[in-house]
Amino acid sequence: MHDTTLLQLIEDDFAPAQQLLDLLQAESTALHGRDMPLLEDILARKQSLVLLLDQQGRRRSELLAGLGLSPDREGAQQLASQSSLGELLMQQLDTLGKMLADCQAINERNGRAITLQQSTTANQIRILMGGEAPSLYDSRGSTSPLSKPRALSQA
């Protein structure tokens, strides 16, 4: 009975995990295109999927803990070893784990893209605002003194 419940909880996560994977891929495209309205929409949908997946994960953990098993893969393996559905249960758990690992990898890649864009934007703003003075060299190879840095718009 508990094995079928756990199997159902795992299978119930397939659709939201696939939706999250699709959203993360769409987010990657939107990040490169800097499509802010689409990114805001994706963020809202992504947050609801992450919450749903988290709740389902907690339900699986509680089910295993309620049986006196560890609330992780090891506990699922112990339950599977005592069940006629054991092989299917572990296959489905592996499938879900792969989907979530793919989600994590794409999310990390998207995070690096966001960090790069933030850095680039900050550098562009610093240049436009006339940030730190450039170090220029004169004909003798020493740095030339600049009286005061000017913004690009004033140059």
Score class of each variant (00 low, 15 high):
65 A>F: 04
30 A>F: 02
132 E>V: 06
33 G>T: 08
49 L>A: 10
127 I>G: 00
29 T>S: 05
36 M>P: 05
102 D>W: 09
6 L>D: 06
111 G>T: 09
67 L>N: 04
47 Q>V: 14
97 G>K: 14
9 L>E: 07
117 Q>R: 07
19 Q>P: 09
70 S>P: 01
17 A>V: 07
104 Q>V: 03
10 I>H: 00
99 M>C: 04
51 L>S: 09
64 L>P: 04
110 N>R: 00
90 M>S: 05
127 I>P: 02
69 L>Q: 01
86 G>I: 06
117 Q>S: 06
9 L>W: 06
10 I>F: 14
85 L>K: 02
95 T>A: 15
126 R>E: 13
79 L>R: 01
108 E>D: 08
82 Q>L: 02
119 S>Y: 10
91 Q>K: 12
45 R>G: 10
64 L>S: 04
107 N>C: 02
69 L>D: 01
106 I>P: 00
102 D>N: 12
50 V>Q: 13
5 T>A: 07
9 L>K: 01
101 A>P: 04
46 K>G: 12
94 D>T: 13
48 S>W: 12
51 L>T: 09
59 R>T: 14
135 S>R: 15
122 A>D: 12
82 Q>T: 02
122 A>F: 11
105 A>P: 01
28 S>I: 01
54 D>G: 14
24 L>S: 10
43 L>S: 14
36 M>E: 07
107 N>V: 08
74 E>Q: 15
113 A>V: 08
100 L>G: 00
56 Q>F: 11
31 L>T: 04
39 L>D: 05
108 E>P: 01
39 L>V: 05
119 S>V: 08
71 P>N: 11
54 D>C: 13
123 N>Q: 14
91 Q>D: 13
119 S>P: 00
60 R>I: 03
51 L>A: 09
40 E>N: 08
89 L>H: 04
122 A>P: 08
30 A>H: 04
111 G>S: 11
122 A>H: 11
111 G>F: 09
15 A>L: 13
25 Q>W: 10
82 Q>K: 00
133 A>N: 07
34 R>H: 11
11 E>A: 10
45 R>H: 09
81 S>W: 02
123 N>Y: 14
15 A>Q: 11
84 S>H: 08
131 G>Q: 12
72 D>I: 05
91 Q>F: 11
85 L>S: 07
97 G>D: 15
32 H>I: 03
129 M>W: 09
119 S>K: 06
125 I>G: 05
94 D>M: 12
46 K>F: 13
110 N>F: 06
16 P>H: 06
16 P>W: 09
14 F>H: 08
63 L>R: 00
35 D>A: 07
103 C>R: 04
70 S>N: 11
61 S>H: 07
58 R>W: 14
27 E>H: 06
68 G>Y: 02
83 S>Q: 06
30 A>V: 03
72 D>L: 07
100 L>C: 01
18 Q>D: 09
57 G>D: 06
105 A>E: 10
63 L>N: 02
98 K>W: 09
115 T>A: 14
21 L>V: 12
118 Q>K: 05
94 D>S: 11
62 E>L: 12
125 I>A: 05
77 Q>N: 09
18 Q>E: 10
13 D>M: 15
6 L>H: 06
60 R>V: 07
35 D>C: 03
13 D>A: 15
